[in-house]
Design a protein around this nucleic acid. Structure first.
Lengths: 150, 150
DNA sequence: GTGATTTTTGCATATTTATTCACACAATTT
DNA sequence: AAATTGTGTGAATAAATATGCAAAAATCAC
């Protein structure tokens, strides 16, 4: 479990902060109580298919980026499976319960999916809320998500 | 001029071969008669905003990838300007004459633009041909391209 | 539980990439 | 023409990243 939690945290960190190096990521993870070395981060980054991209300010930062094929998903789905406890629709909302601390990493990933009907997403520590335009679309989304989990 | 030609060649190389390191790119450039060191390639790669992405086989290779903002274009447009001699429509085709050797680098770049109406593109050494569904669309494309050049 | 097997990790180091510094050359100013 | 300024480059090196290998941790079969 620690592995997925750490990778989920990595997704969160790179999407909320401008992480320039793996050492920097190591320090951030240390703050979040993941005691880990640069070597392991290098491996995580490869698994997650993350890469450095150039920002407008001329610095490089890590980001989630489409790989060659759209085969990225597989690794993410497996993190998804480990992190998610339940998925339910409430009116036009989808509420996803996750293990503690993993909601934000998941949110970053879902953002990258560019789901057209998704109006927005907010998250706490162990809950992720997806906002859809209608209840019908929300319940369809619950079905797709549950399919992905099984 | 050598600079743009070299960078154009880099675009061609990374889109036709799986280039894994800057040293490898240096060797390929040497074959194409660009005598250059890894240091300069590092700088070219940063200017072009290229990054390594993970291929499905688990190797890293260099690729053109969307940067943070869509500000990539600027550098490419300047290569474009130096390379292009003329742009003309012929029926539903657009024929772009370029300096010798620069047509294929340009083709790689145009592919990345994901122009929806563009049915396809082929190139020789100094000519690039863009195939559009109709003559009207082709002549509109000529106008946009000429705008970009002025 | 025990032992066998697989996975994950750190350490040390190899490999790869970015940068500093010095210099060559071109364009511009005086 | 000489001085100045700017740009591009390589050599050397610093910085960042990937990896071979051994050990630790987790998982599995019994």
């Amino acid at each position: 479990m620690a592995r997925s939690a750490r990778q989920s945290k990595i997704l969160e960190l790179i999407s909320t902060k401008e992480i320039e190096t793996q050492d920097e990521l190591a320090r951030e993870l240390k703050n979040a109580n993941f005691e880990i070395t640069q070597a392991t981060i290098s491996r995580d980054i490869k698994e997650l298919g993350l890469t450095k991209i150039l920002t407008s300010s001329g610095k490089y930062k890590y980001a989630i980026v489409g790989s060659d094929e759209q085969q990225i998903s597989n690794k993410y789905i497996s993190i998804f499976r480990e992190a998610v406890i339940s998925v339910k629709a409430v009116l036009n909302l989808v509420v996803v319960k996750t293990l503690k601390g993993m909601a934000s990493g998941l949110a970053s990933f879902i953002d990258k999916l560019n789901i057209t009907e998704l109006a927005g997403a907010v998250n706490g520590d162990d809950t992720l809320m997806l906002i859809f335009p209608t209840a019908v679309i929300a319940s369809e989304a619950v079905n797709s998500l549950n399919d992905m989990l099984s």
